[in-house]
Design a protein around this nucleic acid. Structure first.
Length: 471
DNA sequence: ATGTTATGACCCC
DNA sequence: TGGGGTCCCTAACA
């Protein structure tokens, strides 16, 4: 093992290490200048501060709160000076609320100013596994019997459970490496936890590149040393080779999700909570989006690009689920290529199947999972409807059904069922498998991610804990 | 009517 | 006792 490492390019590795250390040193100065650690400490303090004991939902304080009633938490926390109507009103928390500053942020772990050696090792691992040429094994869809066997072989052990972020998991991403299981989880408060599942000593470390809920994350398929993360006000790219979280774009609108438009991952489509979608080019950081298009949605919760014909993308939000052609997007009055009908309540997610894009699975608050046949994008039809309790209630992240990237016709979704489990369905609507473990899985995993080439499933719950099922 | 948004109760050391 | 960790139902409001 170690011999292989030596042979593989030990000298190269140390060169990277040197480069990294240099970056870290430079960043430390930057960090000090920003006094980010002070803000971070205050964030911690405020975040842990208990609110007064109330049995019912606090009633709005009439007139003074009225103006902000309909705004998002993000907007409510905007600097008080920005909202003249709040001037002089008692909103101490809003004033104290610390902000992660705009622009590039050093990739320094939270609350580990002194002993950050282990976090250094973790980042070095991320960089090393990103240098390795990915095995170009084709994504192959196995026959159902073999697939089921592989699912049966995946188990959860005590070692493969870890709390990696403080609050509930809102998004996850898994590194494509086949030698190390490396996972990123984003939480409600803007934290991103990175975890090397294979190495107990390196463990998990937390970074805070965002102020608000991290709704969507992807490692760049072109360069997995880049981790893109989206929060309501920023899209960032964590670049481990430079030890920086760059800012790709920032907006006053609420970002909700994004996806890459091509294999080079240089442009992305970004969904806005208020309905619009935008095209963003990563190569021109700091500039605003190239195009903002009104697709006629009240909300846009998820966007996903077709895996083969990348000019198409699917958007979901409120009760609308539509497919659009990005080539014909204009600023307003966009007509969808097709519309996926039948949802009677708000839709939590809609994703294309991974290899052909011939299927779409949606999760809806009407307690149904729907699979659509999208072989012909102009004539989309429902293929199957599955009853599934999606009432996650007040404290849980809503379920999103995600396809297994290795298996064209099967998807994974969290469940409210007891004992707690993560379910795998076939596009026909058949329940193929339930991942559960009476000893170690005692909570609902709302967010799940499957490794692109290996039999690995990670489930994230609403207290920041990840569970890794593997062979 | 419908979609969105909040944060309490319990257990354990 | 009390604070931190952990889990997750529903109900007001626009």
């Amino acid at each position: 093992m170690f011999a292989a490492l030596l042979k593989d390019g030990y000298s190269q590795l140390s060169a990277y290490e040197r480069k990294r250390l240099k970056n870290i040193t430079e960043n430390a100065k930057f960090f000090a200048a920003l006094k980010l650690h002070e803000s971070a400490a205050r964030l911690n303090q405020i975040a842990t501060k208990r609110r007064p004991h109330v049995t019912k939902r606090a009633k709005p304080k009439k007139a003074e709160d009225e103006t902000v009633r309909r705004r998002s938490m993000r907007l409510q926390r905007v600097e008080p000076s920005g909202i003249p109507t709040l001037e002089g009103s008692a909103q101490p928390e809003a004033e104290e609320y610390p902000q992660v500053p705009a622009g590039p942020l050093p990739m320094v772990p939270e609350g580990e100013m002194e002993n950050s050696k282990l976090a250094e090792d973790l980042l070095a691992t991320w960089m090393r596994i990103s240098e390795m040429k990915a095995d170009d094994t084709e994504k192959r869809t196995r026959d159902m019997k073999r697939y089921q066997e592989s699912l049966n072989s995946m188990v959860l052990s005590e070692d493969n459970i870890k709390k990696v972020v403080k609050y509930r998991v809102c998004s996850m991403a898994i590194h494509p490496s086949e030698s190390i299981i490396f996972v990123a989880a984003g939480d409600k408060s803007g934290q991103i936890g990175l975890w090397n599942v294979n190495c107990k000593s390196e463990g998990a470390h937390v970074f805070v590149p965002h102020n608000y809920l991290v709704s969507c994350m992807h490692f760049s398929p072109f360069n997995p040393a880049h981790l893109l993360s989206l929060s309501s006000d920023t899209l960032r790219c964590g670049d481990v080779t430079r030890a920086v979280f760059d800012e790709i774009c920032r907006s006053e609108e609420n970002f909700s999700s994004f996806d890459f438009l091509e294999d080079t991952a240089s442009t992305a489509i970004v969904g806005h909570w208020d309905g619009n979608v935008a095209i963003v080019d990563r190569r021109t950081p700091g500039t605003s989006s190239e195009l903002s298009a009104d697709i006629g949605f009240k909300r846009t919760r998820t966007v996903h690009v077709h895996p083969v014909n990348k000019q198409y993308f699917i958007a979901a939000g409120s009760v609308d689920v539509c497919i659009y052609d990005v080539r014909y997007l204009k600023s307003n009055r966009n007509k969808p290529v097709s519309s996926l009908k039948g949802h009677t309540k708000s839709v939590a997610s809609a994703y294309f199947s991974p290899v052909t894009g011939n299927r779409v699975v949606t999760v809806c608050a009407d307690d149904k999972l729907r699979v659509y046949d999208t072989t012909s994008l102009s004539t989309v039809a429902v293929l199957s409807t599955i009853s599934h309790n999606s009432n996650t209630g007040r404290w849980l992240t809503r379920f999103r059904a995600i396809w297994d990237p290795k298996q064209e016709d099967c998807f994974v979704v969290g469940s409210m069922a007891q004992p707690r489990q993560i379910e795998v369905f076939q596009d026909t609507g058949e329940l193929l498998h339930s991942f559960y473990n009476l000893d170690y899985l005692g909570s609902v995993c709302s967010i799940n991610v499957v490794h692109p080439t290996q039999n690995i499933l990670v489930g994230g719950n609403s207290s920041g804990r990840l569970h890794v099922f593997k062979e």
